[in-house]
Structure formats: C-alpha cells, structure tokens
C-alpha cells in the first residue's frame, strides 16, 4: 500500500491480529475497510450493527488525499464524540486515512479517555493502544 501523502510503500503493523498500514515518513496510517470490519467483529459488533459514525467536514484547509486503493479523492470527516479527530474516508468505502499528526493527537489526548466501547471511541482506543509509542516520539521532539 502506498502512502497517500508521501507516495512511498508503507510498513504493515499487525497488532492484536489486526493489520494497519503505517507510513515510516509521515506516520500516517491507513485503516483498510476489511480490517476495520474484523476489528469491529472482535469487539462484539453484529453484522447489522452501525458502522463507524462519521461527521462529514466540507470546509477544511487540510490538503485533499487520494485513496491508495481506488485513487478517488477522499472525503474529510471527523470521528469521535467531540469531533476532534479529522480523518479522510474513501467515497467507495475502501478504508480510512489518519494523518500522522492526528495519530499523535489520538495517542496523547483521546486514548486516555476512551473505554473500549463499541464505536468510534473503541476504534480510537485501539489505535491509541497500537501506536502508543508514536505519542512519546512527538513529545520528545
């Protein structure tokens, strides 16, 4: 999988049997739809349950990204109760892209507050746990 920002091959991180693509340069992360489905299944979601609740954001200064799978322009949305995490979503549903900065934000701020619930908070908790060391890195620098 190629990073939508740096256009280089990404590293694959397998954490608790879920695979995520992580860019070694910008630390952005691609969460493939099928992996997201697996994660939701392990967290106890039934098939008919709601997927991630996203709030679309149309006005943002952040640069647009192209989905690494279908190359279509991705939409911006926020996830989480407080709408603090800005992500890119593929219009075809191929997956989610989380910028390096957003990932650090998740790790340092939000992960501490989540409780493994079966919604965006649960996903955020997972990401926060998987990339726990990313936060330290930025804090140091």
């Amino acid at each position: 999988m190629r990073c939508p920002v740096c256009h280089i091959d990404m590293m694959v991180v397998e954490y608790e049997k879920i695979e995520l693509d992580h860019c070694l340069k910008c630390h952005g992360t691609w969460f493939d739809a099928s992996e997201l489905e697996l994660l939701l299944a392990t967290m106890g979601a039934d098939r008919a349950g709601p997927a991630l609740t996203l709030t679309p954001m149309t006005s943002t200064v952040e640069k647009g990204r192209r989905c690494p799978i279908c190359r279509k322009k991705m939409d911006k949305a926020t996830i989480g109760d407080e709408g603090k995490v800005l992500i890119d979503t593929c219009p075809r549903g191929d997956g989610l892209w989380i910028d390096g900065g957003e990932l650090v934000h998740i790790v340092t701020e939000l992960a501490k507050k989540s409780d493994g619930k079966l919604d965006a908070t649960g996903i955020i908790a997972f990401l926060g746990s998987a990339f726990a060391a990313e936060g330290e890195d930025s804090e140091k620098s």
Partner: peptide
C-alpha cells in the same frame, strides 16, 4: 506487535525502525 517492512525499506529509512507500539 508484528512489523512487516516493504522490500524497498532501505530507501526510506537507512538505519533502524522504531516499533510504533
């Protein structure tokens, strides 16, 4: 955690990889 590095990883980061977890 399990890290899988692409074949051209040397071009990206020459020396070492830090485990994100």
């Amino acid at each position: 955690a399990r890290l899988r590095l692409p074949p051209n990883v040397k071009q990206i980061t020459v020396s070492s990889i830090k485990c994100p977890h």
